[in-house]
Design a protein around this nucleic acid. Structure first.
Lengths: 343, 343
DNA sequence: ATGAAAGCGCTAACAT
DNA sequence: ATGTTAGCGCTTTCAT
């Protein structure tokens, strides 16, 4: 290790002939609290600057038992929805004095468990997690250690952790009703993975809307949030003699697959078949036929989660236990030209 | 602070009636090195598990003067290219025992400077940065503190920092030649921001290819990596009497704007005009006309950067100074149906 | 095979 | 207005 000797407050104390305490006080901004003279402050500050001093965070953390860092656990940043949230979270927490330790779990539950354990060991002051699975035992490690947790998007049934998510149910419900109002009766829903709560809520929204409007032709197909799934299911659907009049894909990835299948069969949207989706990626506007979509309220979700987490941390520090919050943020619908009005 | 007393090695030492030293040795895996008996090991391990012990990273860091963390500075995760890199970096570094501290700078240079300073204060062992600007002084803070740095995508002319990037020049060059070989003569290039090195290299690739093939009709327009820019420039271009036969947009965002302008004027790709782009977002396959594109080698870039950084860290620890590396990774071209063969 | 003790860099009682 | 000192949790040299 040929590192040049680190500059510490001790170095500065020697150089300035002042005590460690005084140097420390000046350097961490509690100078006026201890009425340290302007002259002294100046001497210390100058020495610090000249020596290029930076505090050793490990020492501060150890001393204060605070890490000034917050964990962010995401399934994968390849998903733009998660990436957008990570972007806001990282950026916003930094302005509040926290570093963000990122854990990308590659959509793997086992990886997520490891990630959470690592965060616990690092004594993060809180963690925001977008869970990949349904098992909550690893989250319990955090709870037991009294580390505040906020879930985004997906949540656990069995533990009292606050969460904020899109109101998937009302989103899917209102989109389905929109199709029904437009005169569609044979509306099929291509879903993502059943092990994802968000998916199931969307499916329920679709089903309930169909039931509420006395539509008998209820059909849910598919099993994953992939283009392949959208492609395969759509191919199967359009081959049947009783072809749906509208397709509701539960994600943009699924939608892309559906699009490909429709194009291959030369079916035009919305003339031959209507198509709506969930996510509202920015390219929807620029497709051959711009696709109507439910838009998740990413900004609100990220900002509310941060506020919730920081509030919990603060309450915790004061020995107060905050109630679990369940916040469902209403998504908006972006109407484009992919739905044919049949009546 | 109503925290329950933390479990430390001291707790375990008291419970097991063994010394701190022994407990520490067992817990950090150096048991056999000190020939600690199996019985003792078992006792310690069991107590640790029962008490739910996790080491205090701050203490370890302080003691070892190692942080086990690496900084990742990105302009914004809203850009899928950066998000993909962040995903791989976070995931891969964790398997190598490092945490990743994420700094999303919101494409703001001042924010980036702050971010870098924070990373320095945290004693990260290295940092991977995708620079937002061209000023390098903040990076010098890291260099001075002997913290290894690797740049991705963009780099600094004036400091000897290793970097890895797409070979923007050859990518644009070969794409342009492809258009020329297809018989195009009036090829226009819609560029992004001139303050971005990657942009300028792409422009140069385009120009050089045109020159190498003696094409006089060389035209570069535009000034930012946005849909608006693509839209506006394309509207202007197609209004002219001497309309280009092909448009080369230097990013997918720009391309989306171009697409919109073309659709509004009912110009069909590739029949009325050909279109190629740079980035290769996954939706290109599903557009009305699938668009031919240069694909950045994200995986290679991320993995090579990581290797480079870790090698530098290792060398550093041994007092060796590694040479600056400049790695340009060749992008690939994904051919789709957006180019009309004119000869 | 196990332990005692020093010290990493910092902060905060507790002096004065 | 400034200084002395103990200690946060851990690793490691040096003993035994």
């Amino acid at each position: 290790m040929s590192q040049l000797k680190h500059v510490t407050i001790k170095t500065i104390s020697e150089v300035t002939k002042l005590s460690l305490t005084t140097v420390s006080r000046v350097l961490n901004g509690s100078a006026k609290k201890y009425r340290i003279s302007d002259d002294t402050q100046k001497v210390v500050l100058e020495a610090a600057k000249k020596l290029n001093y930076t505090p050793n965070q490990a020492a501060v953390s150890l001393r204060l038992s605070r890490s000034f860092s917050i964990g962010l656990v995401v399934p994968t940043l390849s998903n733009p929805f998660f990436a957008d949230i990570a972007s806001i979270v990282s950026h916003s927490l930094r302005t509040k004095g926290y570093s963000v330790v990122l854990m990308d779990c590659d959509e793997n539950e086992a990886t997520e468990v490891e990630a959470v354990k690592l965060l616990a060991a690092q004594n993060v002051e809180g963690v925001i997690v977008i869970p990949s699975g349904i098992d909550s035992s690893h989250i319990n490690i955090l709870i037991k250690r009294n580390i505040p947790v906020v879930c985004i998007d997906r949540y656990y049934e069995d533990i009292p952790v606050s969460y904020v998510a899109t109101n998937h149910y009302t989103g899917a419900f209102s989109m389905t009703e929109y199709l029904i109002r437009a005169g569609h009766t044979k509306i099929v829903c291509i879903q993502g993975s059943h092990s994802v709560v968000a998916n199931n809520l969307r499916v329920k929204g679709y089903k309930d809307a169909m039931a509420a409007n006395k539509k008998a032709w209820v059909k849910v197909v598919g099993n994953s949030f992939t283009q392949d799934n959208g492609y395969i299911e759509t191919r199967l659907l359009i081959q049947k003699k009783e072809r749906p009049t509208a397709i509701f894909t539960l994600s943009d990835t699924i939608m892309l697959g559906a699009l490909k299948a429709l194009a291959e069969e030369k079916l035009a949207i919305p003339y031959d078949i209507s198509l709506v989706t969930f996510d509202n990626s920015s390219y929807l506007d620029f497709l051959a036929c711009p696709i109507t979509s439910i838009a998740q309220p990413v900004n609100d979700i990220a900002n509310i989660s941060i506020k919730l987490l920081l509030d919990t941390i603060k309450a915790n520090a004061n020995g107060v236990k905050l109630d679990q919050m369940k916040l469902l943020i209403s998504p908006s619908t972006v109407y484009r030209q992919s739905v044919r009005i049949l009546k």
